[in-house]
Amino acid sequence: MDIVICIKQVPDTTDIRIDPETNTLVREGVASIINPFDMYAIEEGVRIKEKYGGKVTVISMGPPQVEAALREAISLGVDEAVLLSDRAFAGSDTLATSFALSEGLKKIGYDIIICGKQAIDGDTAQVGPGIATHLDIPQITYVKKIEKIENGKIVSERMVEEGYEVVESTLPVLLTVVKEINEPRLPSLKGKMKAKKSEIKIITTEDLKIDTGKVGLDGSPTWVMKIFTPPKKEGGKIFKGTADEVVAELMNEIQNGFV
């Protein structure tokens, strides 16, 4: 079974700043981590392999420094790592990113693709479903448990607001996972040694033979108008007094249209 995990390197959220000029995240001098939701995807991929056998590959798109994130994934039990890296990818929005990743995935081969439910920097939750759409395969989002994988099918539980749904799908499939699915392991010493020695395979637009107009800024219809820190909510109004007084005062406010 070929399991592929899509991960993103993101700035550590404990240190977020926005450049007021460009409306983008300030990345210089900010520590980078693997998107926390992707840690659950990695763990689940490794667990599937441990239970059913197969190979786990991790893929990411980004500048060369994303290698560090890919090596960390290897230290957690992933077998191989692939990085889509090319100047032409710079500035890709979720559409272009999911297109590029889907092309990379076609090259690697896959039975199960796992993504975190969303990235903590953009918070869009669009790339996973975007990849499934580009590949024209089924997707199960917000997976909180994989019940079984057999005979080319997967049965999983997906979180919904009122509880969960049990969803069966054929393979290949794309899953996005929530943090309830598992508790990611810590890196092992053997894993870290392997990560240090592993070769990270770099794939460019040329390797993918894709139209560069479909990736990067050119392939990105999204325009970010403005990013800003939302103003702090002001505290609510507190009515004090006896129950009768308070109710009367509240009614008065409602009638005057303040609430």
Binding site: L186, P187, L189, K192, M193, K196
Partner: peptide, 19 residues
Amino acid sequence: TEEQLMIREICDKIGKEKI
């Protein structure tokens, strides 16, 4: 050595996050 540094790093993470 690099390996010794890794041992320290892993134990430190286990200590901070788990212990």
